[in-house]
Design a protein around this nucleic acid. Sequence first.
RNA 1: GGGGGAAUGUCCCGAGCGGCAAAGGGGGCGGACUGUAAAUCCGCUGGCUUACGCCUUCGUAGGUUCGAGUCCUACUUCCCCCA
Length: 419
Amino acid sequence: MSAPQSDFLKILTERGFIHQCSDLQGLDAKARAGELVAYVGYDCTAPSLHVGHLLSIMMLHWLQETGGKPITLMGGGTTQVGDPSGRDETRKLLTVEQIETNKQAIKQVFSRFLRFGPGGADAVMADNAEWLTPLNYIAFLRDVGRHFSVNRMLSMDSVRLRLEREQELSFIEFNYMILQAYDFVELNRRYGCILQMGGSDQWGNIVNGIDLGRRMGTPQLYALTCPLLTTASGAKMGKTAAGAVWLNGDMLSPYDYWQFWRNTEDADVGRFLKLFTTLPMDEIARLEALRGSEINEAKKRLATEATALLHGREVAEQAAETARKTFEQGSLSENLPTVAVPTAVLETGLGVLTAFGPDYAKLVPSISEARRQVKGGGLRVNDQPVTDERAVLSLKDLTAEGVIKLSFGRKRHVLLRAA
RNA sequence: GGGGGAAUGUCCCGAGCGGCAAAGGGGGCGGACUGUAAAUCCGCUGGCUUACGCCUUCGUAGGUUCGAGUCCUACUUCCCCCA
């Protein structure tokens, strides 16, 4: 297969976004011929997207950069049904209210990566609740359902795996692929969208959309998937101590987001720079070639660039500076997460365990956990290890800056400030 | 409809002759080593308490017992076989 000619596919290829494509040459021709309209669908199962979704968002970003029109499709309708792809068990059905709340919370993040507006090349936000909710069951069965063969549906991975493992697959989930296929057709009719992108687990669903389009008379549609995101050591990516790596700032602070990227494994740095930053390829090649401890420079660059895309340049620089002071100088940074403690409490004396626990710094989830961590040497106050679990913090523990620095492990720090 | 099996520490898998805060993994967290990396080694992994200790946990609800994850009864859910 010859190398793609269109800017869009050239970039995606050299940056490692492409896992599978239904017809790379055909799509390449379309991309060169004129404005390419493509969409990615996002379920509203959580109140924020996470790093796993970032890959597909970046694909939309590059699409717009190269003159195409991106559509972000909110799954306001499909989330009510539940996608069985890649899941062992039926997910709990969310209430319509929860879905709506999640949808609103998720929406905001896209504007960081895409320009929305009424113009031709502006990005569009759609919501499949708009056309799925009013569907009439009988009419839908006759218009759309008749194009689906149950024999073939049973052979789709999402269904087959459940059946093979003898795990329950409810009828409602069985319908998911039909709805997603219909979305593709609907978006083609409304916006002339001819390409659906997504994670590799979406391949089956996307291809169904292409087939349905052919039967229902749309122009040729295309599928393009990106690889599943894992770290070089094989772990599924996107977890920190605190849980998932959320994109919404109120669920994961920009500082923690920066830290997440800073802690990338050596072997992943080059790959992640290509996928999650917009740095030019020759710059990435230079960074990626760094060896030994020099690769830390590349990791900092990765962290700052990735954070800048999501939270803005200024916030990213600030996170970088906070990290530099904390880790490289070992000095205090005012920008570490801060918790206010009433002065009266410090006058009386605050037990260390309590200070680290859920009532104050929230570095550990319980007093018992704090106790265990003292035994294991994991807690420090003003950089001094806590050895006595009965120790008490008071006003004289305040540093010159007027704070008490609490640390859990090497990496997590919180400042207590008298208030 | 009939017969059989299963649900364990709310991250997962999984042992458990009536004395169990409950074996063992995985995962996670902490420590050492490093470069805020990987690999490796060590420790921890229900809540509360300065401490003796107290409290809450084995699908749900009752019962037997000094004492129940372990025995009995009913219920719920899932699986298998027969119809």
